[in-house]
Nucleic acid binder design. Sequence first.
DNA 1: TCGATAGTTTTAAAACTATCAAACAACGAT
DNA 2: ATCGTTGTTTGATAGTTTTAAAACTATCGA
Lengths: 97, 97
Amino acid sequence: MIIKQLSDNEIRVHIFKALSDEVRLNIVAMLFEKKTEMSCGEIGEILDINKSTASYHFKTLREAGLTTTRKVGQNKFVSLNTAVFDKILPGFLDTLA
Amino acid sequence: MIIKQLSDNEIRVHIFKALSDEVRLNIVAMLFEKKTEMSCGEIGEILDINKSTASYHFKTLREAGLTTTRKVGQNKFVSLNTAVFDKILPGFLDTLA
DNA sequence: TCGATAGTTTTAAAACTATCAAACAACGAT
DNA sequence: ATCGTTGTTTGATAGTTTTAAAACTATCGA
């Protein structure tokens, strides 16, 4: 299996793409406000989005390295990777408060 | 003329979209490094991009509020709107250094 | 094991984005 | 005036992104 080594700017592009959507920004803002992990279903219900659309957005955030997912029984819990935010966009999360 | 009032997240989406492209990130990085305005032609030549493509990217950055353009004779000089960066993405520019 | 619940994947349509050539507009110099 | 330079706009094309229905996988409880 070949793993492509991404340049700094490729990483940034990936992250900015992930954040350049209102639904995903709302997910990030919610997770930051609640200061705790939330289940996919809970988030999807609050934001009132189709579950496959929600799943697509969770995948986009996860693949950009912005969130982590933890499976518990039939649920999946999403939480923010604050270390990545702090490294690439220091101070950004605090502007959401 | 009607001016739409953008929400905070709409502004962020606009800015993240503008930054989610390698060419535009390179333009921003160059302007930040040089710490001075640069002409469109100079930037386009350094990055080796077609002039209409370059113009498209300048427009994208300008419309997101990230740059300002000043016309001098037949040239146009582009500079960073550091205040916008500092407000929406505090600390980001420094990560480019 | 069956049924319900929670998420993912596949697929397709619609909307959007990046690129380039060609035509255009604005300016300065001759 | 016309020419060369600098940058914008337009229109075409190729590729990407977002959305949602339908089919699928995994887990739990009865």
